[in-house]
Design a protein around this nucleic acid. Structure first.
Length: 286
DNA sequence: TCCCCGATGCGCT
DNA sequence: GCGCATCGGGGAG
């Protein structure tokens, strides 16, 4: 069933059955997402292979990613640095996702958060906690830590140097495969009526980018330096130190003094960032 | 544009 | 049984 037909079907039902169908839709979407990595995605359009579909005047002035060099994959040595350093180093690099049908998605990293390990009260590894869920936080630098949040979304982290330390990817500037991302986001979104998502809504949040890049729990514990379906490439231009804003992390109000530490990093003035912190921007003058 | 709030179910204590 | 590294819709300004 196409997404449109599916939505029309939902609109005509009363609320109770609507809720039941929402659940079915979510289950179907999750199934489709899993299949995306291993098989065909018949409902998805062919990827856009032209120049980056960025938003003209709103495109970041700090860098412009070229699509020419596809061989610049970052190796394990890149990930072998402390979380704060890695979180900064990620900015301007390009996340690449190859789907089962060969479609490639690309996005430039514009926002990250560092989680420092056992000492960090906001980290899942606080106090040295090691559980089946967060095991990948303790694995070699470059290992993906993907977990489920609020029972319905995924967040994607990359293990860094230091036991239990990692970097959360919070926002990307979509560069290639925007229509596929839009399809993936629309299919996986909660709710019944799918309005068309704006480009800025595709990857401006940790779970949004997971949806747009078809990243799910099956990516947990994968090696970003070696995996065939997801990797990182060096961007054509990295932001200068003064173009990077250090702000408090998002959604960790329970973490006491650690909630205030400037461990979120984003590119100043970049329209693809999920949450702008004007006070932090004043504190870290350009 | 910002704020509020409900959805949702896994993982941990 | 409770909390959560989120998201999106709706309403106010």
């Amino acid at each position: 069933m196409s997404a449109v037909a599916f939505c029309l079907c939902l609109i005509t039902t009363h609320e109770l059955s609507q809720r039941m169908r929402q659940k079915k839709k979510l289950a179907k979407a999750e199934e489709q997402q899993s299949q995306a990595d291993t098989a065909q995605m018949p409902s998805l359009k062919k990827p856009y292979l032209g120049p980056p579909l960025t938003m003209g005047s709103q495109h970041s002035i700090y860098f412009c990613q070229s699509l020419k060099d596809h061989s610049a994959r970052l190796g394990s040595e890149f990930f072998d640095q402390p979380a704060i350093s890695l979180a900064r180093a990620f900015l301007g690099q390009v996340l690449v996702r190859r789907l089962g049908d060969g479609t490639q998605l690309r996005g430039c990293i514009v926002e990250t958060e560092a989680y420092l390990g056992p000492e960090d009260e906001a980290a899942h590894s606080r106090g040295g906690r090691q559980t089946p869920r967060n095991r990948s936080m303790f694995m070699k630098p470059g290992t993906l830590y993907v977990y489920i949040i609020y029972g319905m979304y995924f967040c994607m982290n990359v293990s860094s140097q230091g036991d239990g330390a990692c970097v959360l990817l919070r926002a990307l500037e979509p560069l290639q495969g925007l229509e596929t991302m839009r399809q993936l986001r629309s299919t996986l979104r909660k709710g019944t009526i799918s309005r068309a998502l704006k480009d800025r809504e595709l990857c401006s949040g940790p779970s949004k980018l997971c949806q747009a890049f078809a990243i799910d729990k099956s990516f947990d514990q994968r090696d970003l330096a070696e995996d065939e379906a997801v990797w990182l490439e060096r961007g054509s231009q990295e932001p200068s130190a003064s173009a990077v804003v250090a702000a408090a992390r998002i959604g960790i109000g329970h973490a006491g003094e650690w909630a205030q530490k400037p461990l979120r990093f984003y590119i100043r003035g970049n329209p693809w960032v999920s949450v702008v912190d004007k006070v932090a921007e004043q504190d870290t003058q350009a």
